[in-house]
């Protein structure tokens, strides 16, 4: 991301927030005066008021924890299998040459569309959601692990050789620590992919946490509640991405 967007000055930040507030006020006026149909777009004030109702009545904490648990499970799985996959590809060059392009192609494949297949295999359960998140997010973790290990500075590897380190020692003392920041970039990407797919599949199969909440509210035609729930999911996603970014920045200076 650019410096401009990372460290916005106070005025630009205020203009950004101001434009958002003005937009909401204009929408409120347009809806209140009947220029926009309130049965299609509810007034922002109504959406804001329905936040409390959605949080209290829809047991949002439980739903949030459910989605978070699914994300965490998929995250642990993709970290373990993704990093191991990347290490194996790095260790066995022939395997890397044979499979790297396939994994790159899998990264651009619309894996989430396989959700009906996962429904058949795992049933309408949390495992369908977790497995979709896992499979869709696995390629970036494998590829970034491989990239991190392959890009380790030659001089570091040679220092290890001059100390007669065993391959195992060389891996744990040199390769893995040097590749860790890049591996974390892969895990961060994987977790973002996993969250997107998990919430998406929850919505599509009407099962689980936050995604299901949006679907239920939409099916009840609770428009203000639907908008509030969407805002809540966006908020959760943004906080999640920002936290991952902070952790990544915190990890980087150490290397």
């Amino acid at each position: 991301m650019s410096k401009a967007s990372r460290g916005p000055n106070a005025l630009a930040f205020a203009v950004g927030i101001g434009c958002l507030v003005v937009f909401l006020l204009v929408m409120e006026a347009l809806i209140q005066f009947g220029f926009v149909n309130r049965f299609i777009i509810p007034p922002p004030s109504e959406v804001a008021m329905s936040f409390e109702r959605v949080i209290v009545e829809e047991d949002i904490l439980h739903r949030f924890l459910l989605t978070a648990t699914e994300c965490l499970t998929a995250g642990v799985m993709l970290t373990v299998f993704g990093v191991i996959g990347g290490v194996l590809l790095h260790r066995f060059k022939l395997l890397q040459q044979a499979c790297e392009t396939w994994i790159a192609a899998a990264a651009s494949a619309p894996v989430v569309l396989m959700y009906p297949l996962f429904l058949v295999i795992f049933g309408r359960s949390a495992w369908t959601i977790i497995m979709i998140g896992f499979v869709a997010a696995l390629p970036p973790v494998i590829l970034k692990t491989l990239e991190g290990l392959s890009d380790t500075r030659r001089v570091l590897v040679n220092v290890g050789k001059s100390f007669n380190l065993t391959p195992m020692q060389s891996f744990w003392k040199i390769l893995f620590p040097a590749a860790l920041p890049t591996i974390f970039v892969g895990i961060r990407l994987g977790l973002i992919f996993a969250l997107i797919n998990i919430v998406g599949v929850e919505f599509l199969i009407n099962f689980g946490g936050l995604g299901q909440l949006i679907n239920e509210l939409a099916e009840r035609y609770d428009l203000a509640g639907t908008y509030a729930a969407i805002c809540f999911v966006i908020l959760v996603s943004v906080v999640f991405f920002m936290s991952l970014e902070r952790i990544e920045r915190w990890l980087r200076p150490a290397h």
């Binding site: 997107i196 919430v199 599509l204 995604g211 966006i234 996603s237 943004v238």
Partner: peptide, 9 residues
């Protein structure tokens, strides 16, 4: 930050 949010919602 809006870019990677799940759009299907």
């Amino acid at each position: 930050y809006l870019g990677p949010t799940p759009k299907i919602i």
